[in-house]
Amino acid sequence: MTKTTANPSQGSFDPSNPPGLRAQQAKWKLTFVFAAIVLVYMFTSWQTGSSLIDLWFGMPDVWRMVGELFPPNWGYATETWGRLSETIQMAIIATTVAGILCIPISLMASSNIAPNKWVYNITKQIMNILRTIPDLLLAVIFVGIFGIGAFSGIMALIIFSLGILAKLLAETIEAIDKNPLEAIRASGGNTIQVIVYGVIPQILPQYTSFTLYVFEINVRASLVLGFVGAGGIGQLLQRSISFFQYGRAMMIIIIIFVAVVIIEYISGKIREEIL
């Protein structure tokens, strides 16, 4: 039997109209926010002239495209090996160079190792700015400077991966155990000896793992870079698509897919072992 609760200290309420899960005011607020979000969606859709209906009407074109992609041009596979290995070589060179350069940079960008605040802040800010530049933009810039070809792609990848590696590594360095560094300093070691004997052994596993991870990213990124003429198998893919040779394009996509999966599998296994 329900009855009006009579707890004098807490006041009484009507059981047929108990309090909701939120205050009435909060409900209004939520309704308003929800309506505002819907309006933003409607506005953007109207401004860009695109809507979900286009997806429906575009379906026949989707099927046509898929139809043209299949069957892949299997015979074309042998002609792609050169470019595929170029892609992987670009990634290897770029990762190696970035892997070497990132060591001094990340040391300068770690608050516990940097010689002073200026070096730390300046290095850190430069790396922050570098990281905001998309890889594709870097490739466009370097193609403009060095012309079409793998070298521009490698340069773009070096700068791109340097930004990632230096940040990851600097954060690792900032988290190391500082006691051994104190011991090496106390035994008369200079800064370089402190780094080589105290810092490097502590970050080596993470460093290797990050470098392999960046290698994976570079293999994938170098595919896209080919579209702006920065070398590698991406260049082949871009050409096939612009000549409407979809069978070849599909073949390239399959090869890329298999290569990326294999590389990520191997690198993932190695990283698992290290850490």
């Binding site: 155990d177 006691n179 051994p180 104190e182 011991a183 004997y197 105290g198 052994p201 502590q202 596993p205």
Partner: peptide
């Protein structure tokens, strides 16, 4: 040192 301060790895 109290915590030996060896490089553990």
């Amino acid at each position: 040192f109290q915590n030996y301060n060896l490089v553990k790895r």
